[in-house]
Amino acid sequence: MSLAKRIIPCLDVDNGRVVKGVKFVDIRDAGDPVENARRYNLEGADELTFLDITASSDDRDTMVHVVEDVAREVFIPLTVGGGIRELADIRRMLNAGADKVSINTAAVFNPEFVAAAADKFGSQCIVVAVDAKRVSAEDEPGRWEIFTHGGRKPTGIDTLEWVQKMDAYGAGEILLTSMDRDGTKIGFDNELTRQVSEVVRVPVIASGGVGNLQHLADGILQGKADAVLAASIFHFGEYRISEAKAFMRARGIEVRDD
């Protein structure tokens, strides 16, 4: 095996500014997306994901400029998520310099959108973001349902069936977030991740719950994820990407560190 497992920092962007980044000590402007991207790139991030959390769709243009600015000087893959609802949204982000877009709610309400997007732009740039929540009891075999609206609204859709459908519809990658774990810092839902990774052909990015470096390694070793995504442990300067890679390498995980 020589394909490296990827570490992907995720940056939340609100109105063109990175939020959560306030505790960074040694960069000039903690909220500047380009500064953050530059720093993560230097630390060895394998990709960057920007999540546009801007509430108003009138401000979407701001995100386009963010992507343009980052793509001008950071030469690793860039994924943009949040508010991707139409083919025109995808085209705008790709033209700005994004390599992939992540589709979440729009896929749930209209699965054909994923097929149309993959057909139009190629599967390589279509990431389907899946928010899953465990609905089975502790002593039952795991069953997870797709939720929307930040984990508040159930859809009745079974996660394992859903990811296979998205794979068949042309998703190039699955970004899997455990809504039970998101924000908890107790680690990924590795059982969920492993089951998803086993039923799809495409790479799976584990997300939701990372609190320390062991959690990242567990996502790969137990969850069988192809990549791990984290926000807060990197944002607040608790760990550097380079430390995460050294930690994973010491546990026999192949990472890009050369």
Binding site: S2, L3, A4, S123, Q124, E198, V202, P203, D226, A227
Partner: peptide, 29 residues
């Protein structure tokens, strides 16, 4: 199982010396 697409950082082993490999270590990702 290997995922398809082959996505991410992998090594390129240089099988000939070429001006385009100049200053790039063999097996770089």
């Amino acid at each position: 199982k290997l995922k398809v697409p082959h996505m991410g950082w992998n090594r390129v082993t240089q099988t000939q010396s070429h001006p385009l490999w100049h200053s790039i270590a063999d097996d770089s990702r």
